[in-house]
Amino acid sequence: MTEYFFYFFGGMALLSAGFILFTRHILHAAFALVLTFLCVTALYILANAEFVAVTQIMIYIGGIIVLVIFGVMLTNEMSGKNNESSAVNRFTGGALALGLASLLCYGIMRMNLGLLKEASDPDQVQRLGESLLTDFVLPFEVAAILLLMALIGAAVIASDKLKKDQE
């Protein structure tokens, strides 16, 4: 049963990612991105990573996508007139994706990976939390600084008043 779910969500993720590559309408692309991320979340759950899946929904779909859609609306490019992609461009894009994907898949086939670990771990979240505050305490704190500075940096740039004399 899980196999069907896996191939369904995996296929959906790839279809919607492909749609982003070929669509002209940027808002449609943003919604396709939501769909891709949701499908990827499903893959995380199938790989027994529930906590990462929840984080993915909260941060990616709740945060990043909202930001992207804000960006689309504020830059007023929803009509898509300014980002027409020519047929040649789409062809190159498709060819590039195909070539790179086959190269990577060839590499994967030579990796000898085996099967996904099946057993789900009931205290996984507890172990994750414990790791974050013991073994992974340094990256945890570094991520805190990173977020703080990203916040300040984004605020500096966004709050900038456009001065006429600077133009």
């Binding site: 191939y7 994907a101 085996g114």
Partner: peptide
């Protein structure tokens, strides 16, 4: 049982699509 490779295939194609975009 899902072979791990299939996760990697999906990820590789997703990566290629992202880079193409």
């Amino acid at each position: 049982m899902i072979p791990l490779e299939h996760f990697y295939f999906i990820s590789a194609i997703l990566f290629a699509l992202g880079l193409a975009i």
